[in-house]
Amino acid sequence: TSIVNVSSSLNVRSSASTSSKVIGSLSGNTKVTIVGEEGAFYKIEYKGSHGYVAKEYI
């Protein structure tokens, strides 16, 4: 489990790309479970499925 480190919110994306669809967002200090990594993104558990967040904010 890791913590989201942002002051406002962090986009959760459908794939490991800044141009991919935003499927949701997480607020600062939210706990997330990392299940993998791809480039500059972590794959996380998100709403019963998976999403991707930028590593620099975790």
Rank of each mutant, 00 (worst) to 15 (best):
G28D: 08
G48P: 02
V53F: 03
S19Y: 09
I58Q: 03
N29G: 15
G48H: 06
V12F: 02
S2R: 13
V12Q: 00
E45D: 07
T30R: 06
A54S: 09
S20D: 03
K47V: 05
I58T: 05
V22L: 07
T1N: 11
G39Y: 04
V6L: 11
T30W: 08
L26S: 01
S20R: 02
S27H: 11
S9K: 13
F41M: 03
A40I: 09
E38W: 07
E38H: 07
S49E: 08
I44L: 02
E37K: 05
Y46K: 00
V53N: 00
Y42Q: 01
S7N: 11
I58E: 03
V4K: 07
E38T: 06
K31V: 14
S49V: 10
V6D: 07
K55C: 03
A16F: 03
K21T: 12
L26E: 01
V4D: 06
K21P: 15
S20M: 02
E37F: 05
S17A: 07
S9Y: 11
S7M: 12
S17W: 04
K43T: 03
N11V: 15
T30E: 12
A54C: 14
G28R: 14
G51V: 03
G36A: 08
T33N: 09
S2K: 11
S27L: 14
V12T: 02
V6K: 10
I23T: 03
N5R: 11
S15Y: 08
Y46I: 03
T33I: 13
S7Y: 06
T33Y: 10
I58V: 09
T1I: 14
I3D: 06
T33K: 12
S27M: 13
K55P: 00
K31F: 13
T1M: 10
N11S: 13
T30I: 09
E38D: 09
G36E: 05
H50F: 15
V53W: 01
R13D: 00
V53P: 00
H50S: 06
G39Q: 04
K31M: 13
A54R: 14
K55S: 04
G39M: 04
T33Q: 08
A54L: 15
S17F: 05
N11W: 14
A40W: 06
V4G: 14
T30F: 10
E45T: 08
F41W: 13
Y46H: 03
Y42V: 05
T18N: 14
A54E: 15
S8I: 13
G48D: 08
